[in-house]
Design a protein around this nucleic acid. Sequence first.
DNA 1: TGATAAACGGAACAGTGTTCCGTATTTAAA
DNA 2: TTTAAATACGGAACACTGTTCCGTTTATCA
Lengths: 206, 206
Amino acid sequence: MQEKTTGTKKRIRADAARNEDAVLEAAKTVFAKSGVDAPVREIAKAAGVGVGTLYRRFPKRSDLVVAVFKREVDACAADAKTLAKDNPPGVALSQWLRRYCRFIVTKKGLASSLHSGDPAFDALPDYFRSNFEPALQSLLTAAAKAGEARSDIDAFDLLRAIGNLASAGSQSGGDTDDPEQNEGMQHTYRMLDLMIDGLRFGRSAE
Amino acid sequence: MQEKTTGTKKRIRADAARNEDAVLEAAKTVFAKSGVDAPVREIAKAAGVGVGTLYRRFPKRSDLVVAVFKREVDACAADAKTLAKDNPPGVALSQWLRRYCRFIVTKKGLASSLHSGDPAFDALPDYFRSNFEPALQSLLTAAAKAGEARSDIDAFDLLRAIGNLASAGSQSGGDTDDPEQNEGMQHTYRMLDLMIDGLRFGRSAE
DNA sequence: TGATAAACGGAACAGTGTTCCGTATTTAAA
DNA sequence: TTTAAATACGGAACACTGTTCCGTTTATCA
């Protein structure tokens, strides 16, 4: 945050930045596949780095978990802007809700960590809300203004509702590795469509 | 259960029985001190046996946890009878409620296991209730009959109430190893006394 | 008392997290 | 471009885990 312009010594070495990125990317995948308790070596190998490199940057496991989580939140929130730019407001809205749904499902494993009492995770709920609420709010507003969605929906309420929907729905599910092919996931998508329709065709901008 | 009289082969060897007992006793202590995830070696050493002996009798950790739990339940329920024999009904009742309180506190660590979803623990809640409810019921009835307690209290309700009291109260607490000296424990005892007084002096046998 | 089955103990193995340091890479000065 | 210092890398090594396996000891009973 201050490496770019301030005088606080050097800036981060290129290879270090590259590796940090690789580790986060690998951790995302491994966490999704094997849970947040996956062996450190597995993550390091997937990232193509040594365990030392991983530990230097993320001394505690929670550091890595938090970093991955925030990164995913950022990516998902950023997609809201992208979708809004490339699609009609109503389409952007429903597309993003799907995107958000996938986010919730892949983070199902983290949920238990979040509520584990470890203070390392205390900041995450706020981070979650302060990123997603505005992202969804702007999609909602735009869609409402275009007459493509009702305007009486609270963004955070919707986030929670879909969150519950997705995390409950994906409990049951097939054995497939790909969550997209999962029975429970398909069910979740159908329920989500229901909500989207409600969003679209309910009593509109009153 | 069938080793004593039926013809199903031999009876248990004396040393085996002795060791099983030692392991359970040691596990109780170690679980209380270090939690249910304590290293197997620590339990084995405390029991004065090799890890092989421990594993032979308790192949899965949950086997040991369940056995310790049941044993403690048995002991606590048995104390109800003992106390009833050696004391006036009212005294027996309040003494046993204290005893039960201590049981709950030392089993705090197990609570998380119980609700961990592992089917190995599914039977424990029933075991708990079917032993404690009659035990307390008979104490309550005797005390009520002697005019030393009101008679409109449901045993299971009381068990639950005190359970909540104790497990919540012992959350906060000092650093002392001895739970008996713990700040939270003292608080719990005071609250328990309150309930006991209510039991004793409330509108009685109506 | 001795034969036999049962039980014992702990070495050995495999899989973790974590540290440490010789080596390699990047950076910036010359 | 060359070179020296700073920085980062990788993975061997260590400390602990759970778990298995089998040579040795012990209890039982004829």
